[in-house]
Design a protein around this nucleic acid. Structure first.
Lengths: 132, 132
DNA sequence: CCTTGACCTTCCAGTCACGGGAAGGCCCAT
DNA sequence: ATGGGCCTTCCCGTGACTGGAAGGTCAAGG
């Protein structure tokens, strides 16, 4: 299987697949012509990576998860640990975004949005008069 | 005022201040020795930038906002437009993170997290059996 | 006067996870 | 043999910085 088929089967761009090989996440075979030859195992791994990335795991976390996946003697606690850290990071990011959103929404609703120059958004950015 | 004082007054790292000069957001004077000499105007702008960045605005948005701030003939509608776009982007990011969080939380709670190898997190990543 | 240490400067490289595009080889059908 | 569509590697660019090296400057103490 060539890279374009691997791409369409996994939904990952060919560029991404080459990158994943470059950083050692997958090791596809090579044909006599130098083309990558993807086996089912590689497709499987790529799909795994795509789903882990969609959950926001970093590439290094993905590497860890893939290693755990391939280790029959793993402890599920190790997997859970990685996932809990990721959950925590998502929660922190959510908190941050919610605060931004609250402040921004308040400013936006205070701004007339007409042709006059007076603007509470700019006033706030200039002096941060309001709370948050 | 030297860069370290500008840094402590604005809360921005000196590196960041130099970067902002490099990309043309601020234009501090220079002393005879080549040191940057920050005036109140520069400090003010840097604080503005720091707050805009804290609301998640991109550097290019910050450039636009700063230009509007310095334009007495601006229309507040223009400011509001930029802010609304930012609000929209935050909302999209929030949605994405909430979905990730929901999936991840479900997987985490399904995982025993003990010494056994069976792990619903890995099973899901491997095959995406669940919904979503 | 000399040294020390804390400033300051510029420049280069690295981050993260790719994406764009060039230059060139390969494959298959006409 | 030619065309078009694959494939390859290689290098640069992204955003918004951060780290660090190499070297100039300044003020205080001996």
């Amino acid at each position: 299987m060539n890279i374009s088929e691997a791409s369409s089967r996994t939904g990952l761009p060919a560029k991404t697949i080459r990158y994943y090989e470059e950083i050692g996440l997958i090791k596809p075979m090579r044909g006599a012509n130098g083309y990558r030859a993807f086996r089912d195992k590689d497709i499987h791994k790529l799909a795994f990576l795509g789903r882990a990335r969609a959950l926001g795991f970093s590439i290094e976390d993905c590497r860890t998860l893939l290693a755990l996946y391939e280790d029959d003697g793993r402890a599920s606690a190790d997997v859970k640990h990685v996932a809990l850290q990721q959950l925590d990071q998502i929660d922190r990011r959510l908190e941050e975004l919610k605060e931004m959103r609250a402040t921004l929404a308040r400013l936006v609703s205070a701004c007339a949005g007409d042709s006059r120059p007076d603007c509470p958004i700019l006033s706030d950015l200039a002096q941060r008069m309001g709370d948050d």
